[in-house]
């Protein structure tokens, strides 16, 4: 890493995570909220990989691998829940969904 240090990657990850948080707080479409959660997961992955590169040990790549696997599981379950909610209520607007009961 010539001109680019660990901090550059950490700042990028911080910016990406903050954008994800902003999206989760601001958007009302449950699907877009989900995408913003994926942004936050990717920001954490970037932090893992940046520290792995900086320390010269690739052990840090394994948590990133597990984050990807958990994100896949989370997307499958979350989208199934969104489909179930849409079936019973006809909307995916998180402001209109007030109870957990179907």
């Amino acid at each position: 890493m010539e001109g680019i240090t660990l901090q550059h990657y950490l700042f990028l990850a911080a910016l990406l995570f903050s954008l994800g948080v902003f999206g989760v707080l601001v958007r009302r479409n449950a699907l877009v909220v989900f995408m913003c959660v994926e942004l936050m997961l990717n920001a954490s992955n970037l932090t893992f990989l940046a520290f792995a590169r900086d320390s010269g040990m690739d052990v840090g790549h394994l948590p990133a691998l597990f984050v990807i696997a958990v994100a896949a599981a989370e997307a499958a379950i979350g989208l199934a829940v969104i489909i179930a909610v849409f079936r019973s209520r006809g909307t995916v607007n998180v402001d209109d969904i007030r109870t957990m009961r179907l």
């Binding site: 240090t5 901090q7 900086d54």
Partner: peptide, 11 residues
């Protein structure tokens, strides 16, 4: 994130 001193270790 600022205080982290980059080790910039050889890979």
């Amino acid at each position: 994130a600022r205080p982290f001193v980059p080790a910039a270790a050889q890979t």
